[in-house]
Write a protein that binds this DNA or RNA. Sequence first.
DNA 1: GCATAACATGTCCATATGGGTATGTAATTC
DNA 2: GAATTACATACCCATATGGACATGTTATGC
Lengths: 112, 112
Amino acid sequence: MARAATTSDAFNAVAEPRRRQILELLAEGERPVAALVERLGVAQPLVSKHLRVLREVGLVNVREEGRRRLYRMDGRPLQDIYVWVSRYQAVWDERFDLVDTVLGELKAREGE
Amino acid sequence: MARAATTSDAFNAVAEPRRRQILELLAEGERPVAALVERLGVAQPLVSKHLRVLREVGLVNVREEGRRRLYRMDGRPLQDIYVWVSRYQAVWDERFDLVDTVLGELKAREGE
DNA sequence: GCATAACATGTCCATATGGGTATGTAATTC
DNA sequence: GAATTACATACCCATATGGACATGTTATGC
C-alpha cells in the first residue's frame, strides 16, 4: 500500500500546508476560486484540486453563483483532530492545569 | 513536487493512523519495540520505520537498555496542531462558549 | 566463540501525491 | 453567436509513501 489518500480524513487533508492556507482564507468568509488564486499566488488548477480534497472531507462547501463557485469553510471535521490532540494537551499547556483549578474553585465557591 | 514528507512536521507524521496508534500506546508509558509489534500486530520493520518518522519530528524519544530500545512519547510537537485547530473550535464546540461563561461568572463573583 | 534475540536498515513494489500544462464546460458579454 | 470569463478536469512527471521481505548490527545467553 502507499500513503493514505489525502481525502481519507481531515488529518490527511490538513497535513498539506497549502490546504491549511486555503482554510485560513475561507475562515474570513465565503470566497470565489479566483480570490484564493490571487491571495495564494498559485496556479488556478492547483487551487481547484486542493478545494476538491477539502470538499471530499467536508471541510468546505460550495455554492454556485453564475459562473463563479463560492467556497465556504466548514470546520466541523476538524473536531476529530481536536479531540485526538487534546488528549495530550496536559504535556505542554500550563493553562490546562489552570482551567482545572479555576473550575475547581468555582465549584468550591458554589458550596459556600 | 510530490506530497510533503511525513517527517516534515507533526501534521504529516500524525496523518498516518498507525502512527497515531503507536503514540496512543506510548502514552501509557515507555515501551520496547517488541511490545508495540505485539499490540499492533504488524511486522517489526514497519513499526521501526514508523518510529523513525515519529522520532524525526520529535514525537518520541529513545533510550537504549541492553539490546532493547525503549520508546517514550513526547507530545510537545502536537502543540502546533492544537494551536492551529483551536482557532476553529468555536464552530463545533458548544462548551467553547460555556467556558467563556464560566470564566466570566468567576470574574463577576470575585467582584462581590 | 557461537547461536540467538531485539532492533535498524536496505530493497522492491504499487500507489497517489503536488505541481505544471493543456483542454473541457458552462455562464456572461458583446 | 462568437469571444471571453471562471472554473473543473485530464494528462504528465518526479517523488516518497506503506507494506513485504531480506539482511545488517549489536547485546545477551550458552
